Amino acid sequence: MAIIGILGTPYNTVERSPFWWNKVSYTRQSFIDVFQELGHTVIVLPVDKTENIKNYLPLVDKIVLTGGADVSPYLYGEEPHAQLGTTDPIRDRFELAAIKAALEANKPILGVCRGLQLLNVYFGGTLYQDLSLTSSQIKH
Rank of each mutant, 00 (worst) to 15 (best):
G68M: 03
P89A: 05
D61T: 10
S132P: 00
I138H: 14
A69E: 15
D92F: 04
I63N: 01
V112R: 00
N120S: 09
L116C: 02
P18V: 11
N22H: 10
S136I: 02
Q36G: 02
F94V: 05
T86N: 11
V24W: 02
M1E: 03
P10H: 06
Y11I: 15
L133S: 01
A2M: 15
V112N: 01
A69C: 07
T27A: 14
A82D: 06
T86E: 13
F123H: 15
A82Q: 11
L59A: 06
L110F: 01
V42G: 01
N120F: 01
L96F: 10
V14P: 00
N120R: 08
S72P: 09
P73S: 12
A98S: 12
G111H: 01
N12S: 10
K100P: 09
F123D: 06
L59V: 03
S136P: 00
L38F: 00
T126I: 12
D88P: 09
D48C: 07
L84N: 07
L131I: 13
T134N: 06
D130Q: 12
T66F: 00
G39N: 04
G77M: 13
I6L: 12
D88L: 01
Y128P: 05
I138N: 04
W20F: 04
T126E: 13
T87M: 04
P108R: 02
N22E: 15
T87Y: 09
F123G: 13
Y128C: 06
Q83T: 03
